[in-house]
Amino acid sequence: MRVCADTDEAVAGVEDGATVLVGGFGMAGMPVPLIDALIRHGATDLTVVSNNAGNGDTGLAALLAAGRVRTMICSFPRQSDSWVFDRLYREGRIELEVVPQGNLAERMRAAGAGIGAFFCPTGVGTPLAEGKEVREIDGRTYLLEYPIKGDLALIGAHRADRAGNLVYRRTARNFGPVMATAATTVVAQVSEVVETGEIDPEVVVTPGIYVDRVVRVTT
């Protein structure tokens, strides 16, 4: 675990073609300064996993607009302010995999928990079930779902200590704790870094074992 001096150091080393998990639900919990650093870094041909496909012109939308994303894996790309993604999609310049929101979370949870695949009832009988293995268990139908693992996770938390323990703020928590378990390198931007021991162990949400780099940002 390293506390980085700035966001450029925090995203250093990401390679072209990497799978990047990006936290946030809309703009709540979206690590905009880390995404800006990823844009400056220049890595391209990325697969991005995030609930949405960018809002407005900042954050994930700016990464998409910079042409760095080959594939978007998300639950809800289409929104009133997703004009960047909409244009790229209509021009055939980005691939899209739509995943039900709970499956998106659970597939990353599985990746982080060492689960090879799991049977899930969501999506049975729908177009999103096409090509998936089906199993009857106790009279109910399930689909086989595979993990989603990232090379890099960029998440927004509220406070970190120097051991990498994280706490979040309100509904900005969303995908952060799950993504923190599911990537090779996990980077958290926080509003505050405190000394080790200053976060009550009873309230730690993401234990430091999952976190590789922390950077303080002012928003």
Partner: peptide
């Protein structure tokens, strides 16, 4: 149309 499912499928069966 750009497909967007969100949590609809999870909610429907949950």
């Amino acid at each position: 149309a750009i497909p967007a499912v969100g949590g609809a499928m999870d909610l429907a069966i949950g």
